[in-house]
Write a protein that binds this DNA or RNA. Structure first.
Lengths: 214, 214
DNA sequence: CCGGCAATGTGACATTGGTCACTGAGACCG
DNA sequence: CGGTCTCAGTGACCAATGTCACATTGCCGG
């Protein structure tokens, strides 16, 4: 297991021996089914997750139960919110849910703090921070300025010609509702941009979609 | 001037002598009037700004010319977008405008990269990153889920009993338009929450506003 | 083949926020 | 005092999105 961990997070190979031992000893491995809530708003932050397989969706919750995905944590990546909480000693301000069965190891807070003293590890977290920032900015722009059809068109692109997905799943991704997605997709189909089937969307005109996405 | 700089950014005092000399030699001081665009979307990132006085408003632009403030950079703080761009070698994805006459020094990119090798300086940037993350999350939540009256009520709070501000300024802050703000404020006034005057808003019932803000 | 479930289609309507086009009210200045 | 700003108030209207209530469709297990 530690091999898998180091393969996905090579930065851990650069630790001095004493810390490497502590990592081996103190991390907690676990495998959780899809849909597990790993952390939630207002919870204190217990430790830092390294994802080995599967993935975590980090979402903001609305009052009425709808939610908006902020980003995903895939194997080899890090959870920026957790980093921020651990550094700022603040509580979580979003929810993390597994998207599929997920294997991960949890590093206790104290050890995480120790590792941050290591330049290599600090750089690792640092660069993941800076990468996510731009994504978050992009997200702000999207929800603040872009209309739903633009966002939907963007969502359909870059995933191949054939998508296996329900309208509900697309709506969740956009923080919207199924009916809107159905209507917009119908509009796309009427324009000849896509062909629709049950749990199936075939992209006929990527350029057209890109034009709508703007 | 270097004294002022070090007073606001004490981390610079912890640099080794050779780097301290380079800082002194290579930074560019400038004073710019209010409303100056310091950087803009799609521009490459020239260097890292240290704000000595005044302040920078960082905004995202909409297609129709409206804009949404992301955050402000005040003396002693750092510009997270700039850090992100410098680290990721990417272009800016927002605009930075001075809010008032602003004195700042610009550190060239090469020197910034050098300084990042210093643990103290890296930690400085690091913590500013983590602080801003939560703010950005908050912003996403606001624009995605909160209604304008809630956001306006929130904006009025925590600034004292008497605000000297035009409706237009409030609208700009919310990324909205004057008419909406006028209407909502009228509503607040009708409920006895505020009293309105020219460029003047008196908070009569902070608790009531807080209730609306949610 | 049938019953039932999940996915989808659709129309009517409500709400929110923005746009346009004004009017009116103070403030300031010659 | 009259002219001219900026700021604020307001009504009519529109576009986008969400909500509700169903109808429909296709698939799958029994």
């Amino acid at each position: 297991m530690t091999d898998t961990l180091a393969a996905l997070y090579p930065v851990l190979r650069q630790l001095p021996a004493d810390l490497a031992v502590r990592v081996e000893r103190e991390i907690q491995a676990m495998t959780v089914p899809a849909g597990t809530v790993l952390f939630d708003e207002r919870q204190p932050c217990q430790g830092f997750p390294f994802v080995l397989s599967g993935g975590i969706r980090v979402v903001k919750l609305a009052a009425n139960g709808r939610e908006l995905p902020l980003y995903r944590v895939l194997p080899g990546e890090s959870c920026i919110i957790t980093s921020s909480c651990l550094l700022g000693h603040a509580d979580y301000n979003a929810r993390g849910v597994t998207e599929s069965e997920t294997a991960l190891v949890l590093m206790p807070r104290a050890l995480f703090d120790q590792l941050l003293a290591q330049p290599a590890f600090r750089d690792f977290v640092f660069h993941l921070f800076s990468e996510r920032i731009a994504e978050l900015m992009q997200l702000v722009e999207e929800v603040a300025f872009r209309k739903l059809d633009q966002r939907l068109a963007g969502l359909l692109l870059g995933r191949g010609r054939q998508l296996h997905v329900t309208h509900q799943q697309l709506a969740d991704e956009l923080g919207s509702v199924r009916e809107m997605v159905s209507r917009l997709l119908k509009g796309f189909a009427d324009q000849g941009l896509v062909r629709l089937g049950r749990e199936q969307i075939e992209i006929l005109d990527p350029a057209g979609l890109r034009r709508i996405a703007g």
